[in-house]
Nucleic acid binder design. Structure first.
Length: 252
DNA sequence: AATATTAGCAACCGCACTGTC
DNA sequence: CGACAGTGCGGTTGCTAATAT
């Protein structure tokens, strides 16, 4: 499916990534982070452009990334978000943890665009049912957030999996599972703004010095709740595995 | 069975934005 | 303030697998 591997005149490899290249990139970033994408390939021992490395990491190798098998809820959210945001794939990705902007974009073009067009046609022939809350007209940005939340809540509540979905909705917007309030909290806003753009690295010093036992809890990074011990285990096993299995990228 | 067409998706490309000097 | 480098985003390409003829 991917493009066939080839080299350009500068000796930079293009096309599909091999397993060995994936391993090198993953091992390097897990050990050192991505401090400079342009220089990273040299240090990681890869004949790739920094851009290509970044794309591969963001779309495929990043921890917690999901592939394929979009759920009905995810597809509904994408359709709803597209109605609100247009082709803002990266913003949409912020609402779907584990999904890359590229994957959402592909899903839209291959599956959901047609479905949405059909839905729009049907909607035009019936009166709008769920009236939106009357938000502050002076604050269009906040209104947009609130309307989006409202639409998602309706959408998720009507879903066959509504119990878990509404929890997700309230979790997204309140940072908790209570679902009692409808206020957009800073967690979501910060999460939306920073999740994909902040450099990822296993900052072991921060993990060790943190007094928060749920260092990667949703209130911090919106990662699944897990303890320091779990993080340490994951870090140590992945680093050790990478080191032993793929060897040191500096040596190779 | 062979060929043509379509669907799905990984990866590339070009542009825009931001920060630094 | 302008030039440059680094990064991110959205559109597009091209390869492969699945399906149709």
């Amino acid at each position: 499916m991917a493009k066939a591997p080839r080299f350009n005149k500068n000796g930079v490899k293009k096309g599909a990534w091999s397993e060995d290249e994936d391993n090198k990139l993953r091992a390097y970033i897990q050990r050192y982070g991505h401090w400079n994408w342009r220089l990273l390939p040299q240090f990681a021992g890869l004949s790739r452009s920094g851009k290509s490395c970044r794309l591969r990491w963001m779309n495929y190798l990043r921890p917690n990334i999901k592939h394929g098998n979009f759920t009905k809820e995810e597809e509904d959210i994408i359709v709803e978000l597209h109605n609100k945001l247009g082709n803002k794939w990266s913003e949409m990705a912020a609402y779907l943890p584990g999904r890359s902007d590229n994957e959402i974009k592909n899903r839209w073009h291959t599956h959901l665009k047609k479905r949405s067009q059909i839905g729009q046609t049907m909607l035009q022939s019936e009166h709008v049912g769920n009236q939106k809350p009357n938000h502050d007209i002076e604050n269009p940005v906040e209104n947009s957030e609130l309307e989006l939340q409202h639409d998602l809540e309706i959408l998720l509540t009507e879903s066959p999996l509504s119990s878990s979905s509404s929890s997700l909705s309230s979790y997204l917007f309140n940072g908790s599972d209570s679902g009692a309030t409808t206020q957009v909290t800073p967690q979501l806003v910060d999460y939306k703004r920073n999740f994909w753009t902040e450099p990822f690295s296993w900052d072991i010093d921060s993990i060790l010095s943190s007094s928060d036992d749920n260092f990667f809890s949703p209130s911090n990074l919106f990662y699944p709740v897990c303890s320091q011990d779990m993080i340490m285990d994951e870090f140590l096993s992945s680093s050790l595995d990478s080191y032993l299995e793929y060897n040191d990228p500096f040596i190779n």
